[in-house]
Computed example of a mutant assay.
Amino acid sequence: MRLIASLTSPYARKVRIVLAEKKLEYKLELDDPWSAQPQVASHNPLGKVPCLLLDGGDALFDSRVIVEYVDTLSPLGRLIPERGRERAEVRTWEALADGVVDAAVAARLEAVWPGRTDAERCQAWIDRHIDKVQAGVAAMARDLGEQAWCCGLHLSLADIAVGCALSYLDFRFPDLAWRTQYPNLVRLVDKLGQRPSFVQTQPPTA
Rank of each mutant, 00 (worst) to 15 (best):
L52G: 06
L53T: 01
L53N: 07
D55G: 14
D55V: 12
D55P: 05
D55N: 13
D55Q: 14
G56F: 05
G57M: 09
G57R: 09
A59Q: 03
L60A: 06
F61W: 15
F61P: 08
D62Y: 10
D62A: 05
S63I: 05
S63A: 13
R64H: 12
V65R: 01
V65W: 06
V65G: 03
I66D: 01
I66L: 03
V67Q: 00
Y69C: 08
V70M: 08
D71N: 01
D71F: 00
D71R: 00
D71W: 01
D71I: 00
T72M: 10
T72P: 11
L73W: 04
L73Q: 14
S74E: 08
S74G: 04
P75Y: 06
R78W: 02
R78P: 15
R78K: 11
L79M: 04
I80C: 00
P81I: 04
P81F: 03
P81V: 01
R83N: 12
R83D: 13
R83H: 12
R83E: 13
G84K: 05
R85E: 15
R85D: 13
E86M: 09
R87G: 04
A88V: 11
A88R: 11
E89P: 02
E89Y: 07
V90H: 00
T92G: 03
T92V: 09
T92N: 11
T92L: 14
W93F: 11
W93V: 07
W93D: 00
W93Y: 06
E94Y: 04
A95L: 13
L96I: 15
L96C: 12
D98C: 10
D98P: 05
G99D: 02
G99K: 07
G99E: 01
V100I: 15
V100E: 02
V100W: 06
V100Q: 03
V101P: 10
D102M: 07
D102W: 09
A103K: 09
A103G: 07
A104T: 04
V105R: 04
V105L: 14
A106Q: 14
A106T: 15
A106E: 15
A106N: 10
A106D: 12
A106F: 14
A107W: 08
R108T: 07
L109T: 05
E110F: 03
A111C: 09
